[in-house]
Amino acid sequence: MSFIEITQVSKHYGAFQALHDVTLSIRKGEFVTLLGPSGSGKTTLLKVLAGFEPVSSGGILLDGRDITRVPPEKRNFGLVFQGYALFPHMTVQDNIAYPLRVRRRPRAEIEEQVAALLKLVQLERFAGRKPHELSGGQQQRVALARALVFKPDLLLLDEPMSALDKKLRHDLQEELRAIHRTLGTTFINVTHDQEEAMHMSDRIAVMNHGRVEQFDTAHTLYRRPVSRFVAEFVGKSNIFPGQIGRAAGGQVFSGPGFTMPVPDCAQGEALVLLRPEDVEIAERAPTDGRIAVPVMVASSTYSGDRALYTLSPQAGAQILAYGSARSGVHPDGASLFAIFAAENAIVLD
């Protein structure tokens, strides 16, 4: 029962392939984010969805209807552009009324709808202003109202927060989430900001080199990433290279300076992921069977409730760990143990 079905969509620009067999199915009313670094194909996928770019191969279904070759003006999708693309010669009110005037709705209905949307985005007082008389955040709300006023089947957002400062971004994320809950419209958001993606989305499609690496909830992406790329792009991570081999009592991962048991999986070279909050630090090695690696504090970042430590082990790459900062922060150069449990380690392919 998926609402939008993207099947094996590829897009070539000459010799460059921007999208590589992208397959996604999105449920009605879902808030999905396409997350990836620049050049990962997320914006191209959005343009393909909007109908601005034709696909090279593959297809898109909307509610069972093939829309692959439908032009943008016939798709009934709302779009919020990165730079908002508000019409500079029209007032806020006229901008929001535009899609309704295109549809030749009666005047009374237009007025009613515009008023409702102005209320939704809390801009009633600014109806008569021109876009250049508004702040960035206000312009963004106008763009949102304009894209929603005609009750589109789908709302596409192209990096809608990228031009705003951090505080404002956070408020607008909350607001966008609330609007999504109120309207129940399907939202597809594009961003390179993983925090934004995790705050707002029901599911996130992590994209890299024109492919979807993983499409899942924020929690699954964080706790069960399928690849090194996803593990590193979503949240902070420690990744240990090593070997998986057979030993007495099961399989064992031999990493830099430690060995630990791992569940059954392919033997040979492997990567193991540990999130910084799964690494404890202590002055003494524990006796409960957890793994302890002797380390030295290289640096630390204090953030009130806790501190993020960068630890140098004798072998291998630096280890990130969160430590409680209630009774002070360990000084740089202190000799400590990084402690973690084998069951929190995630073996990557």
């Binding site: 909007a50 109908g51 601005f52 032009p71 943008p72 003006e73 016939k74 798709r75 009934n76 999708f77 709302g78 779009l79 552009f81 990165q82 730079g83 693309a85 019409f87 535009y98 899609p99 295109v102 549809r103 304009r146 894209a147 005609f150 596409l156």
Partner: peptide
């Protein structure tokens, strides 16, 4: 993008 925005609105 102004023209594209217009197109996306039908």
């Amino acid at each position: 993008n102004l023209d594209l925005a217009g197109a996306s609105m039908g």
